[in-house]
Computed example of a mutant assay.
Amino acid sequence: MKQTAKKNDWVRIMQIILTPEERLESLPDSTRKVALKCWMNGFLLDDTAEPGDTVSIETLIGRKVTGTLYEAWPQYNHGFGRQQPALIHAGNEVRRIMKEAGKDE
């Protein structure tokens, strides 16, 4: 389902900085064969737009940038990954070592 964005909505756009043909030949093939992309968030300046449309935005610092609308109201979906078994008890182990060394105060 396409999500229509309206003027002043917070959106994410994408710009192609370098096409594969413009990338340096000294780069590894796996890197050189894909475009170098830049993702930016800002407030939509166009009246309405849908993902894939070319739009203009204004970033939080006031820059006006044009790119391809990727999504409206983007979310941050990153995390720190799964808990690492080797680190589960690290805090308790450090406290134990500090206490044995007399530096637990």
Rank of each mutant, 00 (worst) to 15 (best):
A35F: 09
S30G: 07
G42Y: 00
E58Q: 13
D9F: 06
L18T: 00
T68I: 15
W10Q: 00
P51R: 05
V55K: 04
G52Y: 06
R23H: 07
G62V: 08
F43C: 00
E58F: 02
D29F: 09
P51G: 05
E50C: 09
E93A: 10
K37S: 11
M14F: 01
W10H: 01
K6A: 07
I57N: 00
D53H: 12
G91Q: 04
I57R: 00
I17R: 07
Q3K: 14
I57W: 03
D9R: 02
K103V: 04
S26G: 01
K99T: 14
K64F: 09
D29T: 06
V65F: 04
A5C: 12
I16T: 15
M40E: 09
Q3S: 11
E21K: 10
T48W: 03
V65P: 01
V94A: 11
I16A: 05
R63M: 14
H78R: 11
R95I: 08
M14S: 11
K2Y: 08
L27R: 06
G81R: 08
Q84F: 07
A5E: 01
F43S: 02
L44P: 03
Q75T: 13
G52S: 07
R23G: 08
G42A: 10
A72I: 06
E21V: 01
K99S: 14
K6H: 14
G62E: 14
L60Y: 11
I13C: 03
G91M: 05
L18N: 02
L69S: 03
I61R: 15
G79D: 15
R95P: 00
I61L: 15
K7F: 05
I13W: 01
N41L: 05
I17M: 13
L18H: 07
G52M: 06
E25N: 12
V94C: 06
G79Q: 12
E22P: 00
C38V: 04
M40K: 13
N41I: 06
K64T: 15
E71R: 04
K6R: 12
V55N: 03
T19C: 02
G79K: 03
D53V: 03
L18P: 00
L24P: 01
K33T: 13
H89D: 14
Q84T: 08
E71T: 10
E58A: 10
E25L: 13
W73G: 01
M98G: 00
L18M: 02
N77Q: 11
H78L: 14
R32H: 05
Q3Y: 09
W73C: 01
P74A: 07
V34D: 10
K2P: 12
I57L: 00
K7D: 07
A101R: 12
R96E: 14
W73R: 10
S56C: 10
E58P: 00
T68H: 05
W39H: 13
Q15L: 10
Q75M: 13
E25Q: 08
V94T: 08
D29R: 10
R23A: 05
A86S: 13
I17Q: 08
L69C: 06
S26M: 09
K33H: 09
K2S: 11
G81L: 08
E100L: 14
V34R: 15
G79L: 09
L24R: 11
